[in-house]
Amino acid sequence: MPLSLSTSREVGRPAAARPTPAARLQAWLPRLVLAPSAAVSLCFVYGFMLWTFVLSLTNSRMLPSYDFVGFAQYARLMANDRWWVASTNLVLFGGLFIAICLVLGALLAILLDQRIRQEGALRTLYLYPMALSFIVTGVAWKWLLNPSLGLEAMVRGWGFEGFRFDWLVNPDMAVYTLVIAAVWQASGFVMALFLAGLRGIDDSIIKAAQLDGASLPRIYWRVVLPCLRPVVFSAVMILAHIAIKSFDLVVALTGGGPGYASDLPATFMYAHAFNRAQIGLGSASAMLMLGGVLAILVPYLYSELRSRKHG
């Protein structure tokens, strides 16, 4: 029943079959309140995505121009060796980062879930790296992984002369140093997500599984972890976007080096679009990054949300 704010003048009208202006406003109010953020989102996110796409079809160099050259920039990108290195690195880095974080996070959460003493302190300890910015993480790990200053030097100083850990300066292994630093930063967060999920599981299910004769590892593997699919979903969403966003970590930890062996698409795009005055090429690389992200995340989103609806 719509709110009727009829005045005495309107008394003569028949019983309100149409809502009054005030009632209509009330119905529209939530939409009005949300409208500014929606407009901002639409404009600044999707609008600019579109503009980037337009730019990728032009020959913009230092400043945007609107001379259309079709897909020439994409062709140039495909022929660019550094881009292929960056893309492969993203797949390697992203895949390893997400996988290791999930496993490590789940493991830590399960261990913490055993109702041990000092759980609160341990939890804070593991979560702490998340509070640091990627720049700090990158710089700290750069020192740690530097062969002449960090771990290798320390272990050699202990007497193990033959110890080598020079991944940072090895073109083939540099990208894995990115994985190490990123996993260190983010696995605490994944652990917190899993811990919250574990705590939300009904105790009696575990008891039932115990009565059914399952050992504790079995219980976690068959019963508990499958219940945590929504947590895995959230974790993957967050980790994936961190992986793709990784710009500051690369800049701080390896500078893209040695050479450009540990470059990622984000640094590639920034370098070309802004430092090398090739906005057209940079936009093309940005669009390809977006394409890659959509290609993976959209099917995942779709399958998860659909299965959630059908229980």
Partner: peptide
């Protein structure tokens, strides 16, 4: 120009390090 310089940098540094 900056874009050519960048391309040369990439080749030189890659060659030097790999």
């Amino acid at each position: 120009r900056a874009d050519v310089q960048g391309a040369l940098f990439d080749i030189v540094t890659n060659y030097f390090n790999s």
